[in-house]
Design a protein around this nucleic acid. Sequence first.
DNA 1: AGATGTGAAAGTTTTCACAGCC
DNA 2: GGCTGTGAAAACTTTCACATCT
Lengths: 216, 216
Amino acid sequence: MVKISESTIGRLSHYYRFLEEMEENGIINISSKKLAERGNITPAKVRKDLSYFGNFGRRGLGYNVIDLKKSIIQILGITERCNLLLVGAGNLGAALFSFREFKKASLHIVAILEKNPAKIGRYWEDVLIRDIRDLQEVIDTMKIDIAVLAVPVKSAFLVSEQLILAGVKTILNFAPIKLPHHEGVIIRDVNLTIEFESLTYLLRKQSNIPRKQKFY
Amino acid sequence: MVKISESTIGRLSHYYRFLEEMEENGIINISSKKLAERGNITPAKVRKDLSYFGNFGRRGLGYNVIDLKKSIIQILGITERCNLLLVGAGNLGAALFSFREFKKASLHIVAILEKNPAKIGRYWEDVLIRDIRDLQEVIDTMKIDIAVLAVPVKSAFLVSEQLILAGVKTILNFAPIKLPHHEGVIIRDVNLTIEFESLTYLLRKQSNIPRKQKFY
DNA sequence: AGATGTGAAAGTTTTCACAGCC
DNA sequence: GGCTGTGAAAACTTTCACATCT
């Protein structure tokens, strides 16, 4: 079994989104060339990505939109319901909660934890915002697949340690801090500051501001 | 001049954050080993990353925390003020607006555009929420470096085209849609659904759910 | 003809390992 | 002894190009 790269998985996710659009427009077949058109992708890349998982296309014809979509759903495991625990009911938490795409991908926020007493006890849709101190209980009683860490940076480390201690095996971390590695725990970071800092670097490179450092 | 990879830039951003922490703790020197400790990074990678931009370390001693931090600030262009235009004053917009890290990185939201009349005219701190129809005027009168697209997916394409038409050269897109490429325009996507879908894939791979597809 | 699937080649990034300096 | 800086090797990813099938 060949190791599948993160980039391949990310692109599958992208193809999936595109195929949905195609399906809505009633398109039956699609070529790797068409699939590659959006984004920085080449037809060969599309074919290679898909070929890791099977032979989904037909020579001369391309891929059947509906079948390929189904296959990608299978590969990514989108069919299986995935329960999310949202930790932090601030602006970011609210943004994530109202992110419609999640439901499409079988991702469901089933519990919310928060520190601020003013928010505890309220409901977002039908999900109760509970006290962060109930963390262990929530994890013991609900089948949580992924904990989503949307708390301020200063509490992120502590809360992540509590989550791991309580038995969480997968964390998506939105705090701008690199959490320490734990055996058997998948931690994925979404660091928005890094996105911005990369952009300012690109901006700077683009406009020819002379550099004091040597670049060779 | 060697091409610097995105990953290197992303890691610089991470070192920067770590160095700030070290500085606060009064640490003077740091080795590549220590710098690598957090995250999936090896000491050699740290040294290579830094070596693209200069010789910042001292053999036998490591790097001076304060000096290295200053050098990274230089490289990433964090010193120069960067003006952001926030498009969309929903939950995500609010989350980004209140993201403290931005100010540290000289990123300033100087204008907010929104479609919903109920929100137009309000202030977030001292920034007025303006009508999206003022887009051209805002871009003409303020020096906007990056437009941050935080609108619902259904309006993302249209708004992005308007932004580019109005002269915006750099967009950070949070909508789960791949925007078409335009010559001379940098578009960077932050697609949260992809992050989640990659996680569910990893989850699935970890727990040995048998696969119907062939994986070879 | 048209488009996939895929080995092999090219290109990129990471790791190794060690000379060189503190 | 400790740690950087860096060529060279290894690993990984992308692109090429073409045999193969409809």
